[in-house]
Write a protein that binds this DNA or RNA. Structure first.
Length: 645
RNA sequence: GCCGAUAUAGCUCAGUUGGCCAGAGCAGCUGAUUUGUAAUCAGCCGGUCGGCGGUUCGAAUCCGUCUAUCGGCUCCA
C-alpha cells in the first residue's frame, strides 16, 4: 500500500501502482471526467501512469496550465499521426504545447507542400483519429532501441534528438499507428479531443538556427468541447479589433507609405498631438527627478561608433554610412543616442560633487531591422526613444537604478499598465566572450540590478544570456491584444562606454575616476509605447491624454451657435472640445462620436439653451446627468488631475 | 533575411471556370429634412484592379518579377 496525500492534506491509502485516473474515480466520477493530468510529488504524470510510492498529488483540469499542457501536447501527437497518414514519408522534429495550443515541426517529403487549403482535411483526419479513442501508451525504451527505430524509419531529426539524451530516461508514447519519442505527460486517450483548429503554418529553422534547414511548423489548437473552440475563435476576433494597426488607422493616428519606406511611420496630426502629450508628461516627471534636457544631431561620424564599439557589432547590418564630397568622410544615421551623450559629458571636467548627471533627450534613431521583423509601430526602422543617460559614481549606482524603477512604475500606474512583467537579463553563464567589459564590472552591475529589484519588491524573472553586449539590463514587458509580449521600459547598466570614451570625474581624493553609466527609457520608444497603449485601451485613451475630450452635439442647426459658444468657454478652461455641427440626427452624431472614442458628449437644444444646464453623456455609459458649463469644466479638470495624481 | 499567405475606390469587402464600359456598403459632395440620446432620405463624385514584364483574339482573374502588408522563424544596440 502507498499513502496518497491530497492538496487539502487528507491522506488515503491505495494499492501500489494505482493510477491517477483510478484515484480520481475513487473520489467522484465527475472529477474523473474532468481531470486531464496529475501532479505526483511535483512531477506531472499521465493519468494512466502507475504511482509506485507515497506521494502528494494534485489533479489538473482544463483550467490548470498543466491540464491544458497535457491536452495540447497530446493534440500535437494526434496532429503528427494525421500528418503521417496524409503525407507518407514526412519526417518529424518536435511538437510541444505552447501558450495557446501546440505546434509540430515537420520536414515534408521532397516536392510536397502544405498550405491553408489543406487545413480542413488535416482537421478532419485528426477528429477522425480522435474518435477512435486510442490510448496514449507510455513505454520505456533503451537508447539503442530508440535509435534503431528512427534510423529504420529514416528520420534523422529524431535520431539527432535521441543522441543527445541519456540512456534509461527515454520514453516513447504510442497512440493508434503513431509512435513518438516523448517525455509526456499525455491524456489517457485521443477521445478527449473534441474540437481542433489548425491555425497557421510557418517556417521555422531546425533547432532555431538560421543556418540550418527550415522546417515547416504547423500551429493548431484543440479543446475538450466544441463550444470552447468557438469561444476562443470569437475571442481572437475581438482581439483583432484592438490591434493598434487597425485602431491607428481608424483614429487617424499614424500611417505608413511604401514610397517613404517600410518601417518608417508617419505620424498624423492626432497621433502627433497624442505623442506630444505623452512626451510632455514624461518631461514633467523627469524634471522632478533631476534630469536635464539635451539635443543631439541625427547623424554622427563613423568614428564615433567605432569608438563606442557599435560599429564593429552592428555596422554591417545597419543603414550604411553616408558619404560626403570629402574623401573618406563617413557619417552614420544614429542608431542610438548614447555616444552623443558621452561626448556631452566630456565637454567639461567633472567633479564627484557634480554627479549624478542625467541627460534626457527624445532622440530619434534609425536601425535597419530585418524586413520580416517589422510590425506596425512595435517594430520599426526609425523611432524615437525617450532616452536618458545617467552618469554616476559607482556608490550611487543602486540608488539611481531604484529612482529609474520608480519613474517606470509611476508611468505604468498612471497609464493603468497593471499586467507588466519584469525581466533581468544577465550574461550567458557558458559563453562570456560575447560581451565586452571586465568580469569584475559585470558582476558588480548584475548584483546592483538584482538588489535594486529586490528592494523595490519587483517580481522578476532572470534570463541568462539575454544581456546587451555591454551590460546587464532590466526590462519591463507588456502584452499586446493577442498576447504577444513586447518590451517597453528598459534600464541598462553600462561600464563599457565610459571606458571606451574615457569618461572621468575627479574624486574627493583628487584622483581621476570612471563614472558608471545607466541607459534608460521608460516608454522604450514612443512608437512602441503608443502601440501598446492603443491595444491596452482599445483606443479609449485616458482623459488627460486623448486628443478630443468633449464633443458638443447640437440637436439641430438652430443650436449651432450656442454649441460653438460652449466650445469656446470649455476650450478657455483647457477642456479640449469639438462641435459636431453636421446636418445629422443626434442619434447619428452620438454613434459617430462614440466610434471616435470621445470620452464625453454634450447634447444641446432648446432645453439647454433655456436652462443653461448641459446634458452630459459618457462614452460607453450613456447619459450621466446635467451640469452647468462651469461645473462641467471643473468636472473634467478634476478627472484629469485624478488621473495624473 | 527565411517559410507561407495577401494586395480591387479614402475605409471594409464582392467579383464563380479568363469574355460587353469593374460592383456594394461606409466616408465625401449636393439637395431635401430641422432633427432629443448609438446609423433620415435621395442624387452625385470616386478605381493606372500594388508596380513592371509575359501568355492570350481578350487578363482584376493565368505565369514571372519587384514593392508593400499579414502570420510565424531568426534578430532586436
Amino acid at each position: 500500500m502507498i499513502k496518497i496525500t491530497f492538496p487539502d492534506k487528507t491522506v488515503k491509502e491505495f494499492d501500489k501502482g494505482i493510477t491517477g485516473i483510478e484515484i480520481a474515480k475513487s473520489i467522484s466520477h465527475g472529477l474523473a471526467k474532468e481531470v486531464l493530468s496529475v501532479g505526483v510529488n511535483g512531477e506531472t504524470y499521465d493519468l494512466t501512469r502507475p504511482v509506485t510510492e507515497d506521494a502528494e498529488i494534485v489533479f489538473y483540469k482544463w483550467d490548470d496550465d498543466e491540464g491544458k499542457h497535457a491536452f495540447w501536447h497530446s493534440s500535437a501527437h494526434l496532429m503528427a499521426e494525421a500528418i503521417e497518414a496524409l503525407y507518407p514519408g514526412v519526417k518529424l522534429w518536435v511538437g510541444p504545447a505552447v501558450e495557446n495550443g501546440f505546434y509540430y515541426d515537420i520536414d515534408l517529403p521532397e516536392g510536397k507542400t502544405i498550405s491553408e487549403k489543406d487545413f480542413p482535411a488535416l482537421e478532419k483526419k485528426m477528429l477522425q483519429l480522435a474518435q477512435q479513442k486510442n490510448n496514449y501508451i507510455r513505454k520505456d525504451v533503451a537508447k539503442d532501441e530508440a535509435l534503431k527505430y528512427y534510423s529504420e524509419k529514416g528520420d534523422e531529426y529524431k535520431v539527432d534528438l535521441i543522441e543527445g539524451l541519456e540512456d534509461g530516461k527515454i520514453t516513447f508514447y504510442k497512440q493508434g499507428n503513431f509512435t513518438d519519442l516523448c517525455r509526456g505527460p499525455h491524456l489517457p486517450n485521443t477521445g478527449y479531443i473534441k474540437a481542433v483548429k489548425i491555425m497557421s503554418i510557418a517556417g521555422a529553422y531546425w533547432k532555431g538556427d538560421e543556418k540550418n534547414k527550415q522546417l515547416t511548423r504547423i500551429y493548431g489548437i484543440s479543446f475538450p468541447k466544441k463550444k470552447l473552440l468557438d469561444e476562443y475563435l470569437s475571442m481572437l476576433e475581438e482581439a483583432k479589433k484592438r490591434d493598434h494597426r487597425k485602431i491607428g488607422k481608424e483614429l487617424e493616428l499614424f500611417t505608413f507609405s511604401s514610397r517613404v519606406g517600410q518601417g518608417l511611420p508617419l505620424w498624423l496630426p492626432k497621433g502627433a498631438m497624442l505623442r506630444e502629450r505623452l512626451e510632455n508628461f514624461l518631461k514633467g516627471v523627469q524634471k522632478k527627478y533631476g534630469y536635464e534636457p539635451v539635443i543631439t544631431p541625427h547623424i554622427g561620424q563613423k568614428e564615433l561608433y567605432v569608438t563606442s564599439g557599435h560599429y564593429a557589432k552592428y555596422g554591417k547590418d545597419s543603414f550604411q554610412p553616408i558619404h560626403t564630397p570629402a574623401e573618406g568622410e563617413e557619417f552614420l544615421l544614429k542608431p542610438m543616442n548614447c555616444p552623443h551623450h558621452c561626448e556631452i559629458y566630456k565637454s567639461k571636467p567633472r567633479s564627484y560633487k557634480d554627479l549624478p548627471v542625467r541627460y534626457a533627450e527624445f532622440g530619434t534613431v534609425y536601425r535597419y531591422e530585418q524586413s520580416g521583423e517589422l510590425h506596425g509601430l512595435t517594430r520599426v526602422r526609425g523611432f524615437t526613444q525617450d532616452d536618458a543617460h545617467i552618469f554616476c559614481r559607482p556608490d550611487q549606482l543602486k540608488e539611481e537604478f531604484i529612482k529609474v524603477i520608480d519613474i517606470v512604475l509611476y508611468i505604468f500606474k498612471t497609464l493603468d499598465f497593471e499586467n507588466f512583467t519584469t525581466q533581468i537579463s544577465l550574461r550567458d553563464k557558458e559563453d562570456k566572450s560575447k560581451y565586452i567589459g571586465s568580469d569584475e564590472n559585470w558582476e558588480k552591475a548584475e548584483a546592483a540590478i538584482v538588489e535594486a529589484c529586490e528592494e523595490k519588491g519587483l517580481k522578476t524573472v532572470i534570463e541568462y544570456g539575454e544581456a546587451a553586449f555591454y551590460g546587464p539590463k532590466l526590462d519591463f514587458m507588456v502584452k499586446d491584444a493577442l498576447g504577444r509580449s513586447w518590451q517597453l521600459g528598459t534600464i541598462q547598466v553600462d561600464y563599457n562606454l565610459p571606458e571606451r570614451f574615457e569618461l572621468e570625474y575627479t574624486g574627493s581624493d583628487d584622483k581621476k575616476h570612471r563614472p558608471v553609466m545607466i541607459h534608460r527609457a521608460p516608454f522604450g520608444s514612443m512608437e512602441r509605447f503608443v502601440a501598446v497603449l492603443i491595444e491596452h485601451t482599445a483606443g479609449k485613451f485616458p482623459l488627460w491624454l486623448t486628443s478630443e475630450q468633449v464633443a458638443i452635439l447640437p440637436v439641430s442647426e438652430k443650436f449651432n451657435d450656442f454649441a460653438h459658444n460652449i466650445k469656446t468657454k470649455l476650450n478657455n478652461s483647457d477642456v479640449r472640445t469639438i462641435v459636431d455641427d453636421r446636418n445629422e440626427k443626434v442619434g447619428k452624431k452620438i454613434r459617430d462620436n462614440e466610434m471616435k472614442r470621445i470620452p464625453y458628449m454634450v447634447i444641446v437644444g432648446e432645453k439647454e439653451l433655456e436652462s443653461g444646464m448641459l446634458s452630459i453623456r459618457k462614452q460607453g455609459e450613456g447619459e450621466i446627468g446635467k451640469m452647468t458649463i462651469e461645473n462641467f469644466a471643473k468636472f473634467i479638470s478634476q478627472r484629469v488631475a485624478e488621473e495624473l495624481k
